[in-house]
Design a protein around this nucleic acid. Structure first.
Length: 760
DNA sequence: ATGCGCCAAGTTTTT
DNA sequence: CTTGGCGCAT
């Protein structure tokens, strides 16, 4: 590209940016703090800044963008791609970045490269064993309490041997005992929990100057999104990578810090200017998202917080309709009325389903809305239900993968040794692990020597030996594509047979989940191409995804999600429900002042997601734990400006009779708001829309290889009937591994052009 | 050893 | 109302 072209590119980049935004985008070297209010175009600034840096000649590999959620990372990646096309700017979550770094430097922190990542459930399992071993299992303290304390310690970079309980603090002294045991168990299993990813990584950088220096050199320009949510470990990592090359740009908003419970330290952003005296501070205070009334209401609420950096939020958008505050009789009325409104708006063609979002404080509240929306025929997507990767059948399969990747993985071993049931019970497993512990072997190693273990009879030993052989057979296939490996796994273990015996609904759902996992695997294979270590990469990916990532913007469906999941998103119409004392603010937050402020921020985040219409609501009665309980309205509601609100009452006869609500049950949406100003249009970037730049791929080939399913019986003109053991690849490269009766045995076919047919 | 069923407990938010 | 852990009966 010539100099002229480059210049034009830069001009195009800066076009349509405000003075403040341009300032942040074109800041070149040195620390930068972007204080960005909600809807101020923060993501736009970050992505444009990356594009701008690239245009300045910064090599893409030197830019590192860190986010908190995969969803945010994907969004950023998408928008960068739309701006500059494919490039190797590294965009991802802190956890993912650390996981990858540890993959390379594992030995520095006492792990091997193929370490497992344990999710909360897995780590709790390890913790339970540690507690049992310490003799602390029958204290009346829940394992979760220990888990929280340990997690807190790791987030604050306190090592197991540094943990000192406050004098006289009972729980603390117990934690002090278990923490080292727990950590030892993780290392023995060659595993890391979520906190370890950050913890190990921070230590790696602190204790190995040459590594730190190399990485600082490699990642010269660092951008951290949602900086207000960083904890000490994350802070240490970002800091360690910005010493020789202090080009650290952080964006955030103290008013949107909602992860204090995860160790986020608001001071990291409040005191950024102290840590980096040379910092340039840019404030983005103009809001391009919401109406004036929504913004004023939200601003007034958040003004009740003490710990913040005051911002003057303003918008040039239209006034908009008042914020509705609706009192419902019961939670049923609430869900029903909201669903009915949506249905009506959609029917009248005023809104699409995708315009609506319902936010709630806790996942448990979603059920009522699912029902109501289904009843009114409003399509919806539920973010964060029972997480896919948490389902038992999926965790079991992933457990096999973990074990194949990391034979030391004890949690995985225990999970799969008798799944599906193969006659290896508790007693046997107990003896096995006793033996393993005694000799310092992993469970799998002990299983290999099962003949030497006293008190395991020959018959049971045979079953264990069979399991070991199964493992060895599967290990042969670890370098195959994931879909094929999983297919073999399913076939060899007879995994499906656990569920296919009966035809009941739960079982068929499980089978469907297994198919879904195969699809995930296939998509992974396509993305991953012929890269090395598919298993390792796949496991890492699946370990670090949450269901939140499932959310799709393009789909025209109403969205149901928690307030936490809503951060970073926006919707034309938002319903914020169950604004009740005990839920918002949540009961558990009432103990500390700071925590109540966090709840207020949470509500602030929810309100500022709305572009055009916002409704807050609560019910007088709500079913809780089976019992109907009278609610108390949230104290936050008292902090809202009355003049921006419209008060309504629905389905609450008492209140309606007394006229406690609004005198008239005015028809909803009686006034059609004037959106002629289309506030978001100036914010959208039609030129760079991904779908405009990248047309959707052409139709799939006429002969779909998808008719072949794993387990299907197929016919081959030469070899006769066979059964598909595994599938892999896609399109023209799609292959099937087929088992024929002897003497033919196992054959592999390219499906396109093969004479294979599904047998009727 | 397995499977069922009971009882108890515990419910915030996410990587 | 759910889930998960545990004990009992087969």
């Amino acid at each position: 590209m010539g100099k002229q072209g480059k210049r034009e590119n830069v001009d195009r980049l800066l076009q349509g940016l405000t003075e403040a935004q341009r300032c942040a985008v074109t800041h070149f070297e040195g620390p930068l703090l972007i204080l960005a209010g909600p809807g101020s175009g923060k993501t736009r600034v970050v992505t444009h800044r990356i594009a701008w840096l690239l245009a300045q000649g910064v090599p893409d590999r030197q830019i590192l963008a860190l986010t908190f959620t995969n969803k945010a990372a994907d969004e950023m990646q998408r928008r960068i791609k739309a701006l500059v096309g494919d490039c190797s700017v590294w965009v991802g979550t802190f956890h993912r970045f650390c996981a990858r770094m540890l993959r390379k430097y594992a030995p520095f922190v006492g792990l091997q490269e193929n370490y497992s990542i344990y999710d909360t459930q897995d780590s709790l399992q390890v913790l339970r064993q540690a507690l049992a071993r310490t003799g602390l299992h029958d204290t009346h303290i829940a394992p979760e309490t220990f888990a929280r304390a340990i997690s807190w310690a790791k987030n604050n970079l306190i090592a197991p041997d540094q943990y000192v309980a406050r004098p006289g603090h009972m729980v603390g002294s117990l934690v002090q005992k278990v923490y080292p045991i727990y950590q030892g168990a993780l290392l023995d299993a060659n595993a890391a929990d979520f906190d370890d990813l950050l913890y190990h990584c921070a230590n790696l950088l602190r204790e190995n100057p040459e590594v730190r220096q190399a990485l600082d050199e490699r990642h010269r320009f660092i951008l951290v999104d949602e900086y207000q949510d960083t904890n000490l470990a994350q802070y240490a990592i970002a800091r360690a990578l910005s010493i020789d090359h202090p080009h650290l740009a952080v964006t955030g908003d103290p008013d949107q810090s909602i992860y204090g419970w995860r160790g986020a330290n608001l001071n990291n952003i409040l005191e950024f200017e102290r840590d980096y005296p040379a910092v340039r501070v840019v404030r983005l205070e103009q809001n391009y998202r919401s109406t004036k009334r929504i913004l004023r209401a939200a601003a007034e609420l958040i003004a009740h917080n003490v710990r913040r950096k005051e911002k003057g939020l303003y918008t040039e958008n239209s006034e908009g309709p008042p914020v509705r505050l609706v009192t419902y009789g019961t939670h049923k009325d609430e869900a029903d009325d909201i669903a009915a409104r949506m249905a009506e708006e959609i029917r009248q063609g005023r809104r699409r389903a995708g315009d609506f979002a319902v936010f709630y404080r806790v996942n448990a509240l979603s059920r009522e809305f699912e029902l109501a929306l289904r009843q009114h025929g409003v399509p919806f997507q539920l973010v964060n239900s029972v997480e896919f990767f948490q389902r038992k059948e999926i965790k079991d399969l992933i457990g096999y993968l973990h074990l194949l990747n990391n034979p030391h993985d004890q949690v995985a071993f225990l999970r799969v040794i008798n799944t599906p049931a193969r006659g290896i019970g508790k007693t046997t497993v107990g003896r096995l692990s006793g033996y393993a512990l005694q000799h310092g072997w992993s469970l799998l190693e002990a299983a290999r020597r099962v003949k030497d273990i006293p008190r395991i009879n020959a018959k049971t030993a045979g079953k264990i030996a069979q399991f070991v052989r199964l493992f060895d057979r599967l290990v042969e296939a670890v370098d195959r594509p994931m879909e094929e490996l999983l297919g073999l796994l399913l076939a060899e273990t007879g995994f499906r047979e656990q569920f296919s015996a009966s035809g009941d609904e739960e079982d068929s759902e499980r089978l469907a989940n297994i198919e879904e996992l195969l699809t995930v695997a296939r998509e992974f294979d396509e993305r991953h191409g012929g890269g090395t270590h598919p298993l390792e990469t796949f496991i890492e990916e699946t370990a670090l995804v949450g269901e939140t990532d499932e959310w799709e913007e393009e789909v025209d469906r109403a969205t149901l999600m928690t307030l936490h999941a809503a951060k970073g998103l926006e919707f034309p119409v938002v319903f914020l429900v169950a604004v009740e004392e005990g839920l918002l603010p949540h009961q558990r937050s009432k103990e500390e002042q700071d925590d109540v402020e966090e709840e207020r921020r949470l509500m602030f985040v929810g309100m500022t997601r709305a572009r055009q219409e916002l409704q807050l609501s609560f019910a007088r009665y709500r079913d809780f734990r089976g019992r109907r309980k009278m609610t108390v309205t949230s104290s936050f509601l008292m902090e809202l400006p009355r003049e921006e609100m419209e008060l309504l009452t629905v389905g609450d006869e008492d209140a309606e009779k007394q006229g406690a609500g609004v005198a008239e049950p005015a028809p909803y949406f009686s006034e059609v708001p004037d959106y002629s100003e289309a506030p978001h249009d100036q914010y959208d970037e039609p030129v760079y829309r991904a779908d405009a730049t990248f047309p959707t791929p052409s139709e799939p080939p006429a002969v779909s290889p998808d008719v072949f399913l794993q387990g299907m019986t197929v016919l081959h003109p030469q070899y006769g009937r066979g059964r598909i053991a595994a599938l892999s690849g896609s399109g023209l490269a799609r292959q099937a591994t087929v088992d024929f009766p002897d003497p033919t045995g196992r054959m592999r076919f390219l499906l396109s052009g093969s004479p294979l047919r599904p047998a009727e």
